[in-house]
Amino acid sequence: MTEFFGKRWHDMGGNPAGPITPEEHDFALWEKRVDALMVLTSAAGLMTTDSLRRVLEDMGADAYETMTYYERWIASIAQNMVEAGAVTTEELGSKIAEVRARGVTYGAAS
């Protein structure tokens, strides 16, 4: 059983950590699209900020290390859309296969 320290992994305030690296990036198109999907599905009443975070936080600490910010977001949005009945896992599976068959780069597949 995992020891519980009184807070979950995402509650990082006060944890020891390394120096701040003042990184700056402009956002890639696919990342902007993920952000837009979050805003628009929320406006459509299909999810909320809280339901986004519930899935993100349930992914656990490993996801924070192995997935990028918007990778975690799209995973959460997809989970939320399945839960809301907006799409099914079967539809997602077939559509992903169709997308991948279009080409090997994001530009070619989108």
């Binding site: 799209i74 799409v87 997602l92 559509k95 997308v99």
Partner: peptide
């Protein structure tokens, strides 16, 4: 820029495209 169009399509990028297209096809967006 973050690597995007010119890199190999990742699983999560394919998910973004698939989800976006399905939500549009099904009339949610």
């Amino acid at each position: 820029y973050r690597a995007d169009n010119d890199t190999d399509l990742s699983y999560w990028q394919a998910m973004e495209i698939a989800l976006r297209e399905l939500l549009i096809e099904k009339g949610h967006l």
